[in-house]
Design a binder for these strands. Structure first.
Lengths: 387, 387
DNA sequence: CAAACTTTGTTTGTCTAGTAAACAAAGTAA
DNA sequence: TTACTTTGTTTACTAGACAAACAAAGTTTG
């Protein structure tokens, strides 16, 4: 077994600390970094020089003096590399190109006509190719690719099972890495969405965040202690199959009364059928025009969402629960019912700091999270290599 | 902000690595440690010397040669300090004295007549006092105290609320530290039980373990990635208030259909009342004599337990779920129903590696876990100090 | 405006801790 | 008896952090 508790580790850690300081508080001087982090001035100078040499930090030159020599301000060079994020949906592919801070630089969207891997994968690769073409000249070019998919993914980046695409055993990571020669990360769409909101959305800086991806089914991404939680073997987050009616309808998963049978977009559309509606857009419009039966339906779905969220709150006592994916669009009609139900059912103690929010990044939560995977593994590598 | 990414950290880490190697694979030689950990022989020698100087490691002298110079075998000196663990129950205090490996050296049990803090605390302190008296001469004496309590505890070791004792705001840690002058850790009984099973029982070496403390209510201790998970502000684990019947009976917590209303010892006794039973002992005896209504009752409770456990499995995808506390005693009568229900309701994928077990440490899970708190914080301190 | 003080960032020397390599001690095998 | 092995220590070296001194570039004050 090898587990070096060695010297270079210290440098790695300190480099990470310095880089984080620059990322979070730019522009700032070496002196400020030293003060803020507790690291010695000499150490900071040396590490900063390394970061400048590796194009990750830029010396902007002198700033305003505060009664002594002018500081040399430093900034993160977010444009020295770019990441590609992909959100593979059931009937679309969304792709973005971001800089190293995660800012969106370019964007594409493709509508999918068929689901089969044979036709989808070439389109997906073409989308990446196109985004790569838009990268401006920079030292690192495309540093990595992150892909969020609607299914179960194992640690090798193979999609084990994507029910709504009817895919099984698709080694997507291997395919993409082979083609583009950069690190590729594949993860579940809910996990990607959770990351997106954690980094760029409603969960910024919050330690314990649960992201509820309410679409056709319900998936969840759990960020505990600022890290994505993955259960045994890398699979968890099947909160959609938390049973809320022990004797309720049987679910395809084998259990009965699963949450997603009552609170997903599917559940909504099923119950909308008798009212004469077949998609979310129609329902939203009708509710907007004041159709009471539709408003009542949204209310009912909102309550069901709230029941599950109350359970989540009692289990995890998170700081924030974020509702994302398609159902987020119904915020105006379900928001009240969700909040009311949670308030009534979650433990009072756990509600003190709790916030239940809707995804700030909207339909982009998952793509941006996917891009973040690529950015963070690149930066982790850079912190390590030192040079 | 201070976050030294400094040098001494490396030593701390390596000392910890060496000590762990000794703990896990004793008796072994310096050479073996070097091989196993990847650390240089010289480094190992130096660190081992430090550990010997601080009485944590013993050089047993030469062992069997394997074709060259005889190795000097090393062992953990588990008797150079002792820890006290306390399990504060609703009608008893259980206390143990352990060595640094957690082995039980002495034991006490006190039956409580009253619940009020004024009468219980002196008895608790006296119990600790008595156990301290039994410590044989050793370099470190009593290194710490761990206490498991049936209630909500904050980060300062204050019992915020213990419903079944009717305690609120009892600063137990401060009281005990003042009295004994050693570090005291207070935690919830379910968390302590989880630790006990993780270290000494059915969860040894398992990364993701959920401990279900099924007693008067249902509490849970979650060990994720080998660490106790505590939610925002240090409170979580209220899985007992996971709702399994969204429209079920109202619970004192505000929610409806909470798991513990259907699967706890209380639920059992409530339903046993009409059958003419008032305690678990009576029920166990009757079931043993083949009373069918009692057996059926156990079956029903077992199913309810299973429903909740299936939910837990779907949420956490743990490697193992351990059922502890009073209800564990009914293993023979509820075990089958639990296993059956979980098998039917949990996601098939998550069941592959899953095991549902009963607490191996029996009634001692919590005390031993409590003692472990004291041991681990002592050892953490020793690894840090170096000398 | 000169002198005194401040702030920034580099340089210099010291210290800690880990490593590699040589070596001594103590054994086994041929 | 000679050669090889294994163990654990010693020695010399290296990386990296730090403290203190210092130089550079300001600002403030008398």
């Amino acid at each position: 077994m090898k587990q070096t508790g060695d010297l270079s580790l210290v440098k790695k850690m300190n480099t990470a600390i310095v880089l984080d300081a620059v990322l979070r508080h730019a522009p700032l001087s070496r002196a400020q970094i030293s003060e803020r982090t507790g690291l010695n001035k000499a150490t900071v100078s040396s590490l900063v020089q390394d970061l400048i040499d590796s194009h990750l930090v830029l010396d902007l030159g002198p700033g305003e003096s505060s009664g002594g020599r002018k500081p040399n301000l430093l900034q993160f060079r977010s444009r020295s590399g770019h990441a590609v994020g992909i959100d593979l949906g059931v009937n679309y592919i969304r792709g973005i190109l971001t800089d190293l801070e995660g800012c969106v630089v370019a964007e594409r969207r493709i509508a999918l006509k068929a689901h089969d891997a044979k036709s989808v994968i070439p389109q997906l690769l073409a989308c990446i190719e196109a985004l790569r073409g838009e990268i401006p000249p920079c030292p690192y070019g495309m540093v990595g690719i992150g892909i969020g998919v609607p299914g179960l993914v194992n640690e090798d980046g193979t999609i084990l099972f994507a029910p709504n695409l009817s895919w099984t055993e698709v080694p997507l990571r291997a395919i993409a890495e082979e083609r583009f020669g950069v690190p590729v990360t594949i993860d579940n769409e809910a996990n990607a969405g959770a990351q997106g909101e954690q980094r760029y959305g409603a969960g910024r800086g919050i330690a314990n965040q649960i992201y509820v991806s309410a679409g056709i089914g319900i998936g969840t991404g759990m960020i505990l202690n600022k890290e994505l939680y993955k259960g045994s073997g890398g699979f968890s987050g099947e909160l959609g199959h938390l049973s809320i009616h022990a004797d309720g309808k049987p679910c395809r998963c084998g259990n009965r009364g699963c949450w997603e049978l009552y609170a997903s977009e599917n559940a909504l559309l099923e119950q909308a059928e008798p009212l004469g509606f077949h998609d979310l857009d129609g329902l939203l419009e009708a509710a907007g025009q004041g159709r009471e039966d539709v408003v009542a339906l949204f209310e009912r779905i909102g309550e069901a969402l709230g029941v599950g969220i109350a359970n989540i709150v009692n289990v995890f006592n998170p700081d924030v629960v974020i509702i994302g994916n398609e159902m987020r669009r119904a915020e105006a009609w379900i928001g009240g019912a969700v909040q009311r139900t949670v308030a009534a059912r979650a433990l009072a103690h756990h509600q003190r700091k709790l916030k239940v929010l809707f995804a700030e990044q909207g339909e982009k939560s998952a793509v941006r999270g996917a891009a973040y995977y690529a950015i963070s593994s690149f930066l982790a590598k850079m912190k390590g290599s030192g040079a």
